[in-house]
Design a binder for these strands. Structure first.
Length: 843
RNA sequence: GCCCGGGUGGCGGAACAGGCAGACGCGCCGGUCUCAAAAACCGGUUCCUUCACGGGAGUGCGGGUUCGAUCCCCGCCCCGGGCACCA
């Protein structure tokens, strides 16, 4: 009598047994190929959700399979534990952030164990542990030594709800805080920065080496870095009397070739020069009106492209270096202080924004680039000076064409990145009036936060020595526990924390009270896993060399820029420090899709959350694991379906019954398949086909189809049992099928596979310590193949031939099969695709 | 506007690398078992047409290359995402 499938009994049983036996502890082993499989570590925000289940199940299957296939697999887990949600929860529930955080970690840890994930728990990293964050402070000091830390005053993003500044990367498209979605404000504040821009070029260029990353993510990063090539051009400023003065204003442009079309010059409202230029003149009032209006607007309002542009003449002029023309200087609200130099040369014929501005204020729009088929081109081809002062166009033209009204450059072909750009740049360089230049959208990373629950910045403000780093031997700067967070206290409210002495001069000084952005903690945790308990060094160089880089990283697309860009930056700095010897931390990246329900992402606010705990209670962890892998390819979104989960449970029950019955029927039979008859050969072939298919699918993360093929093997085995009478069945073959199916299932449904292997089939050691089944190509090859026969592209018949039959014989059989369709026609051509089809062309 | 994805039955999805479109699952329909139901098992299930054999159409739309296109090329439409007065 066989037992029925009961996940609620077998799952906790095996979880305890594996933990007792230390099944998942791993150490360096130079004799075996290493594989570092990493999933993005969670934030301990509460119970786990389906997104966690999906992320960690994908990783777990691959980790388990690679282990069986003979790799030394590093598969660690930890918690990204500093950050604002802990503070907010603490304020709400009147607990300390630490208490809340560690309690949630325990809860999530229990859930991960209940899911049967194969983590090496000895390597766990928790970023708010002193043993971890001290090394974060150490990194800060090392960056400082290398000139990568800067404290400067600049306009920054301030979230009024989170009461802290944010990095540019943490402000979403609409000017919202990434965490609470409040609209951020601009404030001029002195803050700490990591100089990520020093690595801008390398961060961009190395994207091409990341062949294992999704295009989407690379495109997003390239977009974010936003490199544009062009030129800096110096314009000489005229004094109030209109005479050229000593000083120059520099602009950045991607189109120096259009310089002859520059008929006005623009300053951003925030540009420091604006006030200076108009002070005490008749132009002051209208100009300041524009400045004040811009200051009142939020960055979101200001970014609306369709809004009418506003500006005012400052009364001053600059000299255009290519033709010495006097060009009026305006202030305009569409010029951004944050990009380039905050000053722009306006070329209304070539830039739509300048075009609209010129039309509104009646400024001239002379053409300087004409498309080759433009009828006006003939008249302007020879003209060196200005013949046409105003185009009659509806909009600006920024495409390629021929330069006109452009002095010595007239007649030259040009366009973005074209020869005109290089020629004008060279001309400017020769005269010292400009130079080739590159501009980036990427800004330095603002890392200081005015919040308590984070890693303290190890710096000291000394009234006489200035900014002084905390000496390495004094690390860590401990985050004090006795802060009353419910009163909104931060380190700045704690004299016992900030009152200190200067390490340089010994005088009274003040400790920095800002903490570091949580993203500094997550930028290097993958390296710490290599040597998580080291108290002498951040990690042992040899251990990091053995495990790193991460072979496969799995996580959500929401980190496409933030975490993944910062981690790449850290890795490059570590390489320059000699701590590691590679440039990129994550060789392959899989961005898993989201779990949706009724078309929406599962969320508390939508009220459509399905709790993993509930599903485990009903169907067991194995069914949930297999279901979530089967429903959709890992990188696509997944629509939750209860019926689908029920179907998965049904299949697992079918497998359970199959293996149990075979085990009872074929107890003690030989472990080698005889496979003599036709049905036996077919089943044996199917088994090997599936072994090959599952192995290959896992290597490509096609986990949904790998499960489909195991279902096919299950169906084939049932089919065999249904069609062959009990006494005639090949016991050895059936037992081999049952064993191999169990082995294939082990990574997916580890508990059920273990129970079947160790108890039902009666093996001596854990299924997870068995070698992965080997694919026998010969056994998988069919002796006979069915081929389709096409006549003029349409399937008109089928033939069954021996697998290695030569083409002539195949064609012969094919033509006979479709003779009726060839009557009265002449066969012009035949094409044979081995084992698949014959294509006949006839007329 | 620029840059990435994506569009296949009632649904989720499959189709290595240009070779039989729709694997596998869900749902639905029919059957076996049962007093009955559930469970389980067996069979069917792209659409149109035909009693049937068969025939025709079909992977967002329109062209092209090819013996052959879901796949490659050109031109569009729609959906999702990122960036965006970035000079």
């Amino acid at each position: 009598m066989t037992r029925s499938y009961d996940p609620h009994v077998i799952e906790p049983k095996w979880q305890n047994a594996w933990e007792r036996d230390g099944l998942y502890s791993v150490a360096e082993d130079p004799t075996r190929p290493k594989y570092y499989l990493l999933e993005m570590f969670p934030y301990p925000s509460g119970d786990i959700h389906m997104g966690h289940v999906r992320n960690y199940t994908i990783g777990d299957v691959v980790a388990r399979q690679l282990t069986m296939a003979g790799h030394q697999v590093l598969h660690p887990i930890g918690w990204d534990a500093f950050g604002l949600p802990a503070e907010n929860a603490a304020i709400k529930s009147n607990t300390h952030p630490a208490e809340w955080t560690y309690a949630n970690i325990e809860k999530q840890k229990a859930s991960f164990k209940r899911m049967g994930f194969s983590y090496d728990w000895d390597r766990t990293v928790i970023t708010c542990d002193e043993g971890y964050y001290r090394w974060g402070q150490w990194i800060f000091l090392k960056f400082w030594e290398r000139g990568l830390v800067e404290r400067k005053s600049s306009p920054v993003n301030w979230c009024p709800s989170c009461k802290t500044v944010l990095a540019n990367e943490q402000v979403l498209g609409g000017g919202e805080c990434w965490r609470c979605k409040s609209i951020v404000e601009k404030r001029e504040l002195e803050q700490w920065y990591f100089k990520i821009t020093e690595y801008a070029d390398e961060l961009l260029d190395d994207l091409t080496t990341l062949t294992g990353w999704p295009e989407r993510v690379k495109a997003m990063q390239a977009n974010w870095i936003g490199r544009s090539e062009g030129a800096e051009v110096d314009f000489t400023l005229c004094d109030a009397a209109g005479e050229p003065a000593e000083s120059t204003i520099t602009v950045f442009t991607t189109r120096p070739d259009t310089l002859f079309g520059c008929t006005f010059f623009l300053l951003a409202p925030e540009h420091p020069l604006v006030r200076e230029l108009v002070e005490g003149t008749e132009y002051a009032a209208p100009v300041m009106e524009v400045v004040d209006a811009a200051a009142k607007e939020t960055s979101v309002e200001r970014a609306l492209g369709e809004r009418e542009k506003r500006g005012a003449f400052t009364g001053r002029y600059v000299i255009n270096p290519v033709n010495n023309e006097k060009v009026p200087v305006w202030v305009a609200d569409y010029v951004l202080m944050e990009y380039g130099t905050g000053a722009v040369m306006a070329v209304p014929c070539g830039d739509q924004r300048d075009f609209e501005f010129a039309r509104k204020y009646g400024l001239p729009i002379p053409p300087v680039v004409l498309p080759e088929d433009d009828p006006a081109l003939e008249a302007l081809r020879e003209a060196r000076g200005r013949v046409i002062d105003n185009v009659t166009w509806e909009c600006a033209y920024s495409g390629p064409g021929i330069m006109v009204q452009s002095g010595a450059f007239t007649g030259m072909p040009t366009g973005a990145g074209g020869p005109g750009v290089a020629a004008v740049t060279r001309w400017l360089e020769d005269r010292g009036k400009g130079r080739f230049a590159i501009n980036y959208r990427l800004r330095d990373w603002l890392i200081s936060r005015q919040r308590y629950w984070g890693n303290p910045i190890p710096a000291i403000h000394c009234p006489s020595c200035g900014l002084v780093p905390v000496p390495e031997c004094e690390l860590p700067v401990r985050l004090p526990r006795d802060v009353d967070i419910t009163k909104g206290e931060t380190l700045a409210d704690h004299p016992t924390f900030y009152e200190t002495v200067c390490p340089t001069c010994g005088g009274p000084a003040r400790r920095e009270t800002d903490t570091m952005d949580t993203f500094t903690c997550s930028s290097w945790y993958y390296l710490r896993y290599c040597d998580a308990r080291n108290s002498e060094a951040i990690w042992d160089v040899d251990k990091a060399a053995y495990w790193m880089p991460v072979d496969q990283y799995i996580g959500g697309i929401e980190h496409a820029i933030l975490h993944l860009l910062y981690s790449r930056f850290f890795t490059k700095v570590f390489r320059d420090m000699g701590l590691i010897s590679f440039a990129e931390p994550f060789t392959n990246l899989l961005t898993q899709g989201m779990v949706r329900k009724d078309g929406d992402v599962m969320s508390k606010s939508k009220g459509n959350v399905v709790a993993p705990e509930d599903m485990i209670a009903e169907f067991g962890a194995d069914a949930l694991r297999a279901y979530i892998l089967f429903m959709s390819p890992p990188d696509k979104d997944l629509e939750w379906s209860r019926e689908g989960l029920e179907g998965m449970y049904r299949w697992l029950s079918r497998v359970w019954r199959l293996v149990s019955e075979i085990s009872a029927e074929c107890a003690g039979g030989p472990m080698m398949a005889a496979a003599e008859g036709g049905a036996e050969k077919a089943l044996n072939r199917e088994m090997h086909r599936v072994i090959g298919k599952v192995t290959e699918d896992i290597s490509r993360f096609q986990l949904n189809t790998s499960i489909a093929s195991m279902m096919e093997l299950t169906n084939a085995a049932y089919d065999y049992r249904n069609k062959v009478a009990a006494g005639d069945r090949d016991a050895a073959l059936m037992r081999t099928v049952a064993e191999n199916l169990t082995l294939l299932l082990a990574p997916y449904v580890p508990h059920m596979a273990e129970e079947l292997w160790s108890e039902v089939l009666g093996a001596k050691s854990s299924v997870h310590r068995q070698p992965w089944p080997t694919f026998d190509a010969q056994a998988a090859a069919a002796e006979e193949v069915e081929m389709a026969v096409q006549v003029n592209g349409k399937v008109r018949g089928r033939i069954t031939v021996v697998a290695d039959l030569d083409d002539a014989a195949v064609i012969d059989a094919a033509l006979k099969q479709v003779a009726a369709h060839l009557e009265g026609k002449e066969v012009l051509k035949t094409v044979v695709v081995a084992g698949k089809l014959v294509s006949v062309v006839a007329r």
